[in-house]
Design a protein around this nucleic acid. Structure first.
Length: 155
DNA sequence: GCCAACGTTGGC
DNA sequence: GCCAACGTTGGC
């Protein structure tokens, strides 16, 4: 696979926003809570330095709001072991983790966040997984041209 | 292995 | 808050 790879990751800003990532120590945080196998498998493909479009979902202005990069490759998501955590998974065990997470580091916020309605209207982005009807995948690959287009529009 | 029921996502 | 679309669960 080519290097670096490009990805898009969704987060609800009320639970974890791009600003939260920027504010974190070293602007770096772990990406816990993914409980979908396809999304997990994509995270397992990530390498340090891979670029990420940070997407705000389920909010007033859904769209890509910032750029980030992978700071640590996949490792077990600790929240799966915690019965008090909302993402607890009783099927997981310490010696048999099911869910992984990666660490992300904020690169910079987009000067002009690229909202969903704009993404839909932009030539060259027709194939984006995000824009597929009914697509709910929270971690998804982005092609290099798609990355270029979105970053340019956000600059 | 089928599939109905249920829970979740996420735009609107 | 609504609801379409999708993923998961569990009975059979």
């Amino acid at each position: 696979m080519s290097y670096p790879s490009y990805w898009l990751m969704k987060s609800e800003p009320t639970s974890f926003s791009f600003a939260d990532l920027v504010k974190a120590k070293h602007s770096t945080s772990h990406w816990d809570g993914v409980r979908n196998y396809q999304a997990r498998n994509y995270m397992r493909e990530m390498r340090v330095g891979d670029k990420v479009l940070f997407y705000h979902s389920n909010c007033e202005q859904p769209g890509v709001v910032g750029l980030a990069e992978v700071a640590r490759t996949a490792y077990p998501d600790h929240t799966q072991f915690d019965p008090k955590d909302i993402h607890y998974d009783p099927k997981a065990a310490r010696d048999k983790p099911i869910w992984d997470m990666v660490d992300l580091r904020a690169i910079k916020p987009l000067c002009n966040p690229v909202n969903l309605d704009v993404l839909r209207k932009t030539k060259g982005l027709e194939k984006m997984i995000l824009l597929r009807r009914g697509s709910r995948l929270s971690v998804q690959p982005v092609s290099p041209p798609e990355w270029e287009i979105v970053v340019k529009m956000g600059a």
